[in-house]
Nucleic acid binder design. Structure first.
Lengths: 147, 147
DNA sequence: GTTGACATGTAGCCTAAGCTACATTAATCT
DNA sequence: AGATTAATGTAGCTTAGGCTACATGTCAAC
């Protein structure tokens, strides 16, 4: 029956679409670490002149071991340079990413604040949510925030 | 020097605050699986009358093995009942969670759409972002969406 | 009542992100 | 210079979330 056929097809389709969304979210999660560390390092360099492992670990709220290993992976992704016992620097790619992340963070926080959320909660919620905001949505947020 | 002292103190404070935000985000990530599966199961029960492992795996876009193990953990958290080779049901706690997640998802999607984001992108971005939206921020979003 | 298909379960592997405990290097302070 | 402290690195463990390959259960259709 055509009705049933169509229903089944559309169900299958929406299953696929939904699965694709979940997959995209998981992919984004794998990038979160890189984004967080890169942004943190940019901040430290701006504020202190250099980014050292122990400060990164403190800021991130993890053990220095966890930080060391995360930094190694972010390095492998090409966002930073690090040599043993030397402060960390960002590559061009890393600087770009940090800039984008900072802007995105600020826009999401601004959005929440404009909606009436208190600053501290806006910061906390933005921290997790921002990584999943695509550039199209970001554009829309920017328009609203600046209107 | 008092100035330096205060600067150090406030820096330390903000480091702690920032670390706390990251920790909260990590904690939220650990709950994401539970939220996703619970919501998915509620959907399946509503649509098909029952929730079976293989359908959950398909919807989530993972292997059935991954689904089985995730379901076991969500069960341990008290959100669902599952017995070998039987369809899964939600506990009272699970039903409540599913309801909250559904509402939250819809509100976040509505927010993005109201900001001018196309439906499909809104859905995709909401999928990842929604888990990090606190109830206070959700209230603010609700007010805006319904205004 | 067998067969075949699909659902479910088990074994065992990988990577990421977390940890503690211990080792080493560097810097600072008598 | 030697001792202390702080930073960095290594070893080795855990848990969560992925996977494939193989084993078993269930059910329907012949």
């Amino acid at each position: 029956m055509s009705t049933k056929f169509n229903k089944n097809m559309s169900q299958k389709q929406s299953t696929k679409q939904r699965a694709a969304r979940f997959k995209a979210t998981r992919k984004q999660h794998r990038l979160e670490t890189a984004e967080d560390y890169t942004e943190l390092i940019a901040d430290l360099i701006k504020q202190k002149g250099e980014a050292r492992t122990c400060d990164i670990a403190k800021l991130k709220g993890v053990s220095h071991v966890t930080a060391i290993r995360a930094i190694r992976r972010v390095k492998e992704l090409g966002y930073l340079n690090s040599e043993p016992r030397k402060p960390i620097t960002l590559t061009k790619k890393g600087k770009k990413l940090a800039e984008f992340c900072k802007k995105r963070h600020e826009l999401v926080v601004s959005l929440f604040i404009k909606l009436g959320v208190p600053q501290d909660i806006a910061e906390k919620d933005a921290e997790g949510a921002e990584h999943h905001i695509s550039s199209k949505t970001l554009d829309a947020i920017e328009k609203y925030v600046k209107s």
